[in-house]
């Protein structure tokens, strides 16, 4: 009897979707939220500027 009542609870605890885990972790979100614009906006943009040939 005890086994059957515990099982669904356990299952429920284990079934946290990946997206929920992501959304519930502010520091993981912080990492992603800083990394995305740093890579796609800043680093990519700066690389384009530094690779412009210097005028003779």
């Amino acid at each position: 009897m005890k086994e059957t009542s515990d099982k669904p609870e356990k299952d429920q605890e284990e079934k946290i979707p990946a997206m929920q885990t992501l959304i519930d972790n502010p520091f993981l979100l912080l990492f992603i939220g800083v990394a995305m614009p740093t890579v796609f906006y800043l680093i990519w943009g700066i690389m384009e500027i530094v690779t412009i040939p210097v005028a003779p």
Binding site: L22, L29, M36, P37, F40, Y41, G45, E48, I49
Partner: peptide, 29 residues
């Protein structure tokens, strides 16, 4: 979450007429 991932990339619209960066960078961002 879409804000966290993409909102900040909109900074690029200020650079849309700048000659130093590629169209790929502008269009993606």
């Amino acid at each position: 979450l879409l804000y966290i991932l993409f909102l900040q990339l909109a900074c690029a619209h200020h650079i849309l007429v700048d000659p130093g960066v590629s169209a790929e960078w502008k269009v993606f961002n």
